[in-house]
Simulated assay, not measured.
Amino acid sequence: MVAGVEYFFVASMGVGLIVLIRWMAMDSTYRSTKRRLRLAREHANQYILPEDLDYPCQQLLRRAQNAVEAIMASAVHKAGLIDSIENQVSLPEEVWQIATRLRKLSSMHAEQGKIIPRELPKGMEDAFKPYTSALDAAWTSLSQRVRHLEKYAKQVLKADKVYHAHTRLEKLAAKTPEYQQLIAETVRDELAHERIRELSDQAAHVRKLFEESILQARQAAGELLRSPLT
């Protein structure tokens, strides 16, 4: 009988221990979730969620992010042929500044939609117009900012294409003497000189295109960064 009691006591202790462990695990999860929520509230001004933006603002921000991602992933950026350090510092900040303004614009647009009646009394349209015009002006300004980013990205991608062609041509250029010798040995003198000159001219042309494309990318960056959003 005593053995049975001891068994029951041990079994009860085992069940109690399991319940205690499960409670501790649940409590730990609860405390961890609570801590994360507290941190999220404390740092709410340091991140932006998709639901913070209305659909047009989400799309505009995505365009800005795509442009910056294209620039940062480019070969000319990685090779340091454009101002890579400035890009790494300024472009993420530019996207963040655009995002914060889009968040504010979304909030004010939603607020305005609740305040301004759908059907205004006759003669009242002009009274509300300055407020709607202010939001329109902000949208236009931010859209222009994103277009500047996209213009920069376009120039960088153009430079990338020329850069890839340039690197391939450089490999061939190293073998120019072999090609010149081949032409000299197999083609009539007058025609040989013309072909050799074409080789040199083509290499110079591609190099010029490459230098021009890099310059255009830098100019586009200059236009963007001369008036940063702060």
Rank of each mutant, 00 (worst) to 15 (best):
Q97F: 12
I98E: 02
A99M: 04
R101L: 09
L102R: 04
R103L: 02
K104V: 13
S107M: 07
M108H: 08
H109D: 09
A110G: 06
A110H: 13
Q112M: 14
Q112K: 14
I115L: 11
I115M: 08
P117C: 08
E119D: 09
E119F: 01
L120P: 03
P121C: 01
K122E: 12
G123M: 06
M124E: 13
M124A: 12
E125R: 11
A127S: 01
A127Y: 01
F128H: 07
P130M: 02
Y131I: 15
Y131L: 15
Y131C: 12
T132M: 05
T132C: 01
A134C: 06
L135V: 01
L135G: 00
D136A: 12
D136E: 13
D136Q: 12
D136Y: 09
A137G: 00
W139P: 00
W139Y: 09
T140Y: 10
S141G: 09
L142E: 04
S143I: 03
S143D: 07
Q144A: 15
R145W: 02
R147W: 09
R147H: 10
R147G: 02
E150D: 07
K151M: 04
Y152I: 11
Y152F: 15
A153L: 06
Q155D: 11
V156L: 05
V156Y: 02
L157H: 06
L157I: 11
K158D: 07
K158H: 12
A159N: 04
D160Q: 13
D160H: 08
D160R: 04
K161C: 03
V162M: 10
V162N: 09
A165L: 05
T167D: 08
R168N: 05
R168W: 05
L169T: 04
L169I: 06
K171A: 08
A173H: 08
A173S: 03
A174E: 00
A174M: 00
K175P: 01
K175N: 11
K175Y: 09
K175F: 08
K175C: 06
P177M: 05
P177T: 03
P177D: 02
E178K: 13
Y179F: 01
L182K: 15
I183A: 10
A184I: 02
E185Y: 10
E185A: 14
T186P: 00
V187C: 06
L191R: 15
A192H: 11
E194A: 14
E194Y: 14
I196D: 07
R197F: 12
R197Q: 15
R197H: 14
L199W: 14
D201H: 11
D201P: 01
Q202F: 15
Q202V: 13
Q202I: 13
Q202D: 14
Q202S: 15
A203T: 14
A203M: 14
A204V: 15
